[in-house]
Design a binder for these strands. Structure first.
Lengths: 230, 230
DNA sequence: TCAAAAGTGTTCTCCCTACACCCATGG
DNA sequence: CCATGGGTGTAGGGAGAACACTTTTGA
């Protein structure tokens, strides 16, 4: 095989990244999937991802793939697990470093048109290619654990949001119901929200205040050793 | 190069595992290090680890290396991060999937004698080979996060232990001081300890009750959705 | 007899919970 | 005028923090 220019003394697996992209539509948590155009698993949905280049870190690779396929720049991204079962890819031994990204759906323009991308509500996700069903389960667990103690939820919302939107986001991720008053009280108590002068009519009823995330106060809080918890 | 029998169309990184082994000596958290006998970083200390075989998962590889180098069988092991900076290994591109193991020091016999292994208190850890300083920092963070909500500390203790030993373990890991009475009250309240009939003299003073971890009750608790927190 | 450590109890405070109540808006 | 949703207040209970008290042992 003349094409195989890269030789090693011992067998090397291929190394890829996959990225679970979470978004929020106001009611449900969603993930962005891509329909595979090539074998294997042609026609099945999968997470965006690809092979890591030899001179980039895995995180750089994941960010690069993300931008190529969704147009996202500077996304919130976090590594959560590496999947390495032999046989998880029928072509050759591939291990994949999996990331999840939290994006505000408005920011996703859709990448190059060759790839067919689509948002799926968590309950509507079809059977996925490779071991991506497993990857999704692990990603969800990690997201739920993380949001208990870090204000990562804000990455899924626009810059300005109402208290109800924030509550619905937490309820969608954690699959619980919060008391309206207590949620607002607790959230405001952490002092990580700016209350803006503006307001909106999120429903046909009464207008609601708008808030933004105050990252400086949050960093102060962390520096002083406080933890938030939800 | 006649030796290079394994060829690929695109360059492949090498894939390794490293394992941060935590132990507890009664006062301090410790890690097991191995002195490197070969270049690079010959003479420097590093975590046990090695390359992943082409037909084993990374976890299988980590467990195998662990047994080869320490004699440990069936250890508590958990993947926590994958390190992939280009240049982290001067020989070739190597990405490493990092695990931490929690062991009861009594169970470690020491592996084959060719490798020089030694326990280091966290404060006495020297500068390590490769990026293992970073790996240790990340491992410690993850261990601290995890022990807040899961009773993994018991893996570091003998089967039978006193309340004070357990408290000292938590204090060593989290670097805080607990009130004696409150710690015992809270821990017993979770109902995950068996109080044994035996007792010991852990100090030259008064005898103390012995406890063991009740994993059935803990699993019950988890199934019912309760969380422990420390 | 004293110091140290184990075991247990008590009080105070704070936060979370579950509601209740008012206000604004559109039908 | 009523239903819906935003905003705020209040009473009760539970858990943690601080600390005190007793008992047992060796020096």
């Amino acid at each position: 095989m003349e094409d195989n220019k890269f030789s090693y003394k011992y067998p090397h697996p291929a190394v890829a990244t996959d990225c679970v992209i979470f978004g929020f539509d106001g009611n449900s948590l969603e993930v962005l999937l891509i329909e595979r155009g090539l074998e294997p698993y042609r026609g099945r949905w999968a997470f965006p991802g690809g092979f890591v280049k030899i001179d980039e870190s895995c995180e750089e690779g994941a960010v690069r793939e993300l931008q190529e396929e969704t147009g996202l720049v500077n996304p919130y991204i976090e590594q959560f697990h590496t999947f390495s079962e032999p046989g998880r890819d029928p072509r050759e031994r591939v291990i994949t470093i999996a990331y999840y990204a939290l994006v505000c759906k408005q920011d996703v323009k859709g990448g190059d048109d060759a790839t067919k991308a689509q948002w799926f509500k968590l309950n509507d996700v079809p059977q996925l290619a490779f071991d991506h069903d497993l990857i999704l389960r692990v990603a969800l667990n990690r997201l739920r654990e993380k949001i208990h103690f870090e204000p990562i939820g804000f990455e899924l919302l626009p810059d300005k949001f109402t208290m109800r939107q924030l509550q619905q986001l937490y309820e969608a991720i954690l699959e619980v119901q919060f008391d309206r008053g207590n949620f607002a009280k607790k959230m405001l108590h952490y002092n990580i929200l700016n209350q803006l002068d503006e307001s909106v009519w999120p429903t046909p009823k009464r207008e609601a205040k708008l808030y933004s995330f105050n990252i400086e106060n949050y960093n102060d809080m962390k520096r002083k050793g406080y933890r938030m918890e939800f």
